[in-house]
Amino acid sequence: MLGYVIRRILYTLPSLFCILVACFLLTRLSGDPVDLFLPIDASEEARQAFREQNGLDRPVVEQFFVFTERVMRGDFGNSLRFQEPAVDLLVERLPATLELALATLALSVIIGIPAGIASAYFRNSPLDFTVRGVTAFGQAVPTFYWGILSIIIFSVWLRWLPSTGSGTIWHLILPATTLASTMLALVTRVMRSTLLETIRQDYVRTARAKGLGEMAVLLHHAVRNALIPVVTIVALQFGVLMGGVIVTETVFAWPGVGRLAIQAIYARDYPVVQAVVFFFAVIFVLSNLAADLIHAVLDPRVRLR
């Protein structure tokens, strides 16, 4: 397995290099940060000094090689806005993002798996139609719409929950449920479809023929095997989830990495944007690797090559 992990990491290096190139070039298409950070009437000497201080006076190719060399050392440079290392700003905001992502993951698994099992077990019942309708609606509605709608209902009308900020579990409820809407629907639908396929397998019919109770057959034979693709999907979705926090954190003013990315984009803060984009790319790559490994561990038919 160690050899497989090493090969997979080596395979991802070209992708990570392409991401480095993309985020380096695209951030420079947003405009000159000098126009944003210095007054309109700033002298040419002041503008040139700002460029020299931040390495913006060098040729683009040289800037890229300097940028790549620093990234290899874990240094994305100093934020143009906060005058602090970009990595330090990212690390400072990371706990809030992880808190939101893990709460979303927990909601999706704790609610989605039982809902999918119930929907499959009571197939074509009113419960099944309700679960399928809710999950289809959850996947169709954009996250930002859920966020705004939940703020209007639970914060403005009912005044039950705070709409912005962090610090308590009450601040976490609305962002976590909003971000979980799409992932919860996906987990429920995958659990339902895989369980319906599993209960038609020969080993499930054999277990029934041996006289086992329906719940024993369902939980100990069907559900255990149906969980394999669900766990894989959850691992894959964690990388997508970390990228999806940008919209949710912006809507709820959650002080995480996603909100930091939006602020950095508006401010043309190249080092911070590059650090956040590269961080999300690494998380996505690692979540894909984790999904492959988890699938291989849970399913002995899979061989790592």
Rank of each mutant, 00 (worst) to 15 (best):
A96K: 00
G77D: 00
L102S: 08
E62F: 11
S79W: 00
A115I: 04
G74V: 09
V131L: 12
G133E: 13
I169H: 11
A103Q: 08
V141L: 14
V61T: 12
P114T: 04
A101G: 08
R159H: 13
L149C: 10
V61I: 15
I110H: 03
D88A: 14
I153Y: 08
S108E: 06
W157H: 11
V91S: 02
I151Y: 08
A103E: 03
I153A: 15
Y121M: 11
G77V: 06
Y121D: 07
T130M: 09
P162T: 09
P142Y: 01
V87Q: 06
A176G: 02
I111L: 14
S166M: 09
F65E: 08
G138H: 06
L149W: 10
N124H: 13
R81I: 11
L105K: 04
F144V: 10
A86Y: 00
P175D: 02
V66K: 13
D57W: 08
G133D: 13
V134R: 09
H171P: 01
I110V: 15
P175E: 05
Y145I: 15
R81V: 15
A120S: 12
L105H: 02
I113S: 03
Y145R: 08
F64S: 03
S163V: 00
E52V: 11
V61C: 05
P126I: 01
F64K: 04
N54C: 11
S108H: 07
V131M: 11
I148N: 07
I153N: 10
V60N: 01
V131F: 12
E84P: 06
G165L: 07
F82V: 12
P59N: 07
T97M: 02
F67E: 02
G116V: 03
L80N: 00
G112C: 03
I173E: 04
F67A: 04
L89Q: 12
Q83N: 13
I110F: 12
E69A: 15
L56W: 12
G74R: 09
G147T: 06
V60E: 06
I113V: 14
W157T: 14
M72W: 09
N54K: 13
A120R: 05
A86F: 00
N78D: 14
I152H: 11
G74H: 08
S108P: 05
P142V: 03
F137R: 04
F76E: 06
V87T: 11
R159E: 15
V109I: 14
F82S: 14
R58C: 10
V87H: 01
R81E: 13
I148A: 12
G147W: 05
T177N: 05
R159N: 12
A176C: 05
M72R: 10
I111H: 01
D128W: 05
G116P: 02
G133F: 11
I111E: 02
N54P: 07
R93D: 00
L94Y: 01
G116T: 00
P142A: 02
V131H: 05
F82I: 08
S79N: 02
P162F: 01
A136V: 13
F122A: 15
V71T: 11
F122P: 12
F137I: 11
I173S: 04
P59I: 07
L94W: 01
V141D: 08
D75Q: 08
I111V: 14
A106L: 15
S125D: 07
R123A: 12
I148G: 03
V109Y: 00
Q139E: 12
R93V: 04
R81A: 13
G77S: 07
L94E: 03
P162A: 09
L102M: 07
T164R: 13
Q63K: 05
P114G: 01
A101C: 10
